[in-house]
């Protein structure tokens, strides 16, 4: 992993889509921050890595899908996307292609990523 980029705000997403509103409300925060001119990075950790699986449409219970929001990140200039490598491995997802271009990050590098950001919000 090279080129650890810093920023104003790191939004950490630790929940899978659909089961709770954490992912959706976390992504909303990232978009608003970017709209306010902040340099925003995203880190998908733990179950949050499941947000990156392709085909995240709306759920059977009528919850909105997060895929459209992920596709909007680029429009908001949020291009610093990180995914916890270990979490992908633990869930057998490491060989899957991800729906957005996120860089795999090793556990021991995460602390450096945190240190590179002024503000961190956890969802």
């Amino acid at each position: 992993m090279t080129g650890l980029s810093g920023g104003d705000l790191l939004v950490i997403l630790r929940h899978a889509p659909h089961g709770s509103s954490w992912l959706k409300e976390g992504l909303d925060t990232a978009l608003v921050a970017a709209a306010f001119g902040q340099r925003v990075s995203l880190l998908f950790m733990g179950d949050g890595v499941m947000a990156l699986l392709p085909g995240q449409g709306s759920g059977p219970l009528g919850q909105k899908g997060t895929q459209p929001t992920l596709q909007m990140l680029e429009m908001y200039d949020i291009d610093s996307l990180w995914v916890e490598h270990q979490a992908l491995l633990e869930r057998g997802l490491n060989d899957m292609s991800l729906s957005v271009d996120a860089t795999r990050i090793e556990k021991d590098a995460i602390s450096r990523l945190l240190a590179e950001h002024t503000q961190i919000l956890n969802f």
């Binding site: 104003d8 705000l9 909303d28 925060t29 608003v32 921050a33 709209a35 306010f36 902040q38 503000q119 919000l121 956890n122 969802f123």
Partner: peptide, 20 residues
């Protein structure tokens, strides 16, 4: 108020502490 106020709080003050 809007989420923008949270972003404002995160930049305008010395510390923003989360309780989740």
């Amino acid at each position: 108020t809007g989420l923008g106020q949270l972003i404002e709080a995160s930049t305008a003050y010395d510390r923003l502490i989360s309780f989740s």
